[in-house]
């Protein structure tokens, strides 16, 4: 059961491991973008503390976008995508496996490195778990929704820019809830509501996005 799906996750992780530099580049992008904000805005601790959640979340969105372009494009270019479409398990399951692999390679590292960025922004210590939890719940949604866009723009000219135009508006709720939960905690309120909403978004995305990705792949591969 789910052998093909597991095989895809392992395969994508193996390829990512052999191309470690690509993964590191997306992560570095995240670090650099967050480091630019103090340079542009000014380094007053009070200001930095207040913008930290938003900056970290926006940078996470952009860094996720950056790696989405490769999600199906590499498989499309070398012809393995056709074999994925002809696999022995429903395409929705295969699509979910691809999104999971994408999250493990590009979303999870962001969750792990975010506390370091928060340190630079002098975020109060009690907010760290909230930030990490919001990213942990939110970044998989980014991978799932983004994969729909990546599948739709497969093989198009200017696919990367187009992808961001399609996907970024759909990321708005995740951004608002993710950054909002940290803001709530910073204001001394309980962030449970926002985190639960993020979890709800994740469940809904996990239930429906794989089928949309599958449909998009079928449309693009014809």
């Amino acid at each position: 059961m789910l052998e093909a799906a597991r095989c895809i996750v392992v395969r994508d992780l193996l390829v990512a491991w052999r191309r470690r530099s690509d993964v590191a580049t997306a992560l570095l992008f995240f670090v650099i973008v967050t480091s630019l904000f103090p340079l542009g805005i000014g380094a007053e601790p009070e200001l930095l503390r207040s913008i930290a959640p938003g900056v970290i979340w926006v940078a996470a969105l952009l860094s996720c976008m950056l790696s989405l372009g490769r999600l199906f494009a590499a498989d499309h270019a070398d012809g393995t995508l056709e074999q994925l479409l002809l696999s022995s398990e429903p395409l929705g399951v295969i699509a979910a496996a691809k999104a999971l692999a994408h999250w493990l390679v590009s979303g999870l590292p962001l969750v792990l490195i975010a506390p370091l960025i928060a340190l630079q922004y002098d975020l109060p210590a009690p907010l760290y778990p909230v930030l990490a939890l919001s990213l942990l719940l939110g970044t998989p949604v980014l991978s799932l929704i983004g994969a729909i866009g990546a599948a739709l723009t497969l093989g198009l000219r200017g696919g990367g820019v187009l992808l961001s135009l399609l996907v970024l508006p759909l990321y708005v709720p995740v951004l608002i809830m993710g950054a909002g939960s940290v803001d709530m905690a910073a204001a001394g309120l309980a962030p449970d509501g926002q985190l639960l909403l993020l979890a709800a978004l994740l469940i809904v995305a996990a239930a429906f996005a794989p089928w949309a990705i599958a449909a998009a792949l079928r449309i693009s591969m014809e």
């Binding site: 395969r11 193996l14 390829v15 052999r18 270019a77 070398d78 012809g79 393995t80 056709e82």
Partner: peptide
């Protein structure tokens, strides 16, 4: 038509 193999594997 395409090779359908991953370069890194």
């Amino acid at each position: 038509h395409a090779a359908a193999v991953k370069d890194d594997l």
